[in-house]
Design a protein around this nucleic acid. Structure first.
Lengths: 213, 213
DNA sequence: CGTTATGGATACCGAGCTGTGTACTTAACG
DNA sequence: CGTTAAGTACACAGCTCGGTATCCATAACG
């Protein structure tokens, strides 16, 4: 409710502590990773005393979990609500990642924390499953014969692009998007791409034409 | 040269230090991660004194890099040399991962170390590029129209399966293999898989070029 | 104005980490 | 056997980390 911390805050930095902490988390955890970011540094960046930080969060673990939860509204889910796009376009739009995306924070957290029971790891799992579900849902809208499968496939592509971008330090989302286009057109019987080939079976037969966009 | 450390070593633990250290690294770095494995614990597991460890490796960084280099001969590269398989089968065999594969160690190292300049991160990058190259090479053998693209695509699928298996804690390599099969068959003009569609030149004139963007 | 919740500064604790120094023991080999 | 390289045992330095305690300042609100 209190939106006052958004003010110029010129006089003082008080009262917006929690938001400032989470803001600094977004930046530091992504830039340096979770394990390499100490609470001291984080509090300094947030201009918050350590005491205050530990009054808002019982510990770093809880802070990390909350930090992950704050990603939701910003990135991925947005594309699913874009009514200006066809379902097929929405599926492909999920591969338009901002360049400022070093590594999907959910994957990063799962790897860094290395404990599947950690609240943040649990949430990362839930999130990944939810994204796959939304992809599947959109795939159904697009008329895919097996939406669940297509959703899982596209989710895998996104994760692959994210991981590979990080490791090889080369943009991989375009490669993933290309694959996605193939899979989508293969999964939709009479594709909106207009290409009706004589049925038979799916996989090898359909020439793809990922032309859209 | 000394292969004597392979003996029963019943009497004492001396003399095989380096190998024991690397052996313990394989186990502990994978089970617990790199950052969460201290040199003390590692030396204890290897039954090696700390002093000895630091005589073999200048520091943990070097040990981690060497640990990564030791993965090569075991896993992936093996499939490329299997002459009993057709090129297409070899490409698909790359997706047969042992269940004991929590997360590709190269991805894990790149994420955990979080420093692209770290020797281990550099090596991880080289390795990933090399694997993509070998996939491309095999793709060429298999007759793919654009082997480089197919190689990169398959590499992305492998990384995606690895990352997703870790985060969602559910086997994803079968999904990746299914996608791979589609991509391979789409990329090979008249597939060696016996799936002859009626000659008509699909790939030549109706290019599969999924590569939009 | 006065009260109170919130936040700030800072010192500190205990633990774990990488890495070293010192002195001793043992295995390998001629 | 004697030499030498390899390994052992263990303490310790120096640092960072997560988390706590104490004391003080101030902003919000009646």
């Amino acid at each position: 409710m209190t939106e006052l911390e958004k003010g110029p805050l010129g006089r003082r930095r008080g009262r917006g502590a929690r938001e400032r902490i989470l803001g600094a988390s977004q930046q530091l955890f992504r830039e340096q990773g979770i394990n390499r970011t100490g609470m001291d540094q984080l509090c300094a960046a947030a201009q918050v005393s350590k005491r205050t930080a530990y009054q808002h969060f019982t510990g770093k673990d809880e802070l990390v979990a909350e930090y992950l939860r704050r990603f939701d509204p910003d990135v991925m889910p947005g594309v699913f609500d874009r009514t200006d796009l066809t379902p097929r376009e929405r599926l492909l739009a999920a591969f338009d990642m901002p360049a400022s995306m070093p590594l999907c924070p959910y994957i990063a957290a799962a790897v860094e924390l290395h404990d599947p029971q950690h609240p943040a790891s649990r949430y990362a799992r839930e999130y990944k499953v939810a994204i796959a579900a939304r992809l599947a849902e959109t795939a159904r809208e697009a008329g895919a014969t097996d939406p669940e499968q297509l959703g899982e496939q596209l989710a895998l592509l996104i994760d692959g692009a994210s991981a590979r971008t990080r490791v090889t330090n080369s943009e991989s989302f375009s490669t993933a998007a290309a694959i996605a286009a193939v899979l989508i057109d293969n999964a939709i019987p009479a594709s909106a791409a207009g290409r009706a080939d004589d049925g038979r079976d799916t996989a090898a037969s359909a020439p793809v034409r990922a032309g859209g966009r």
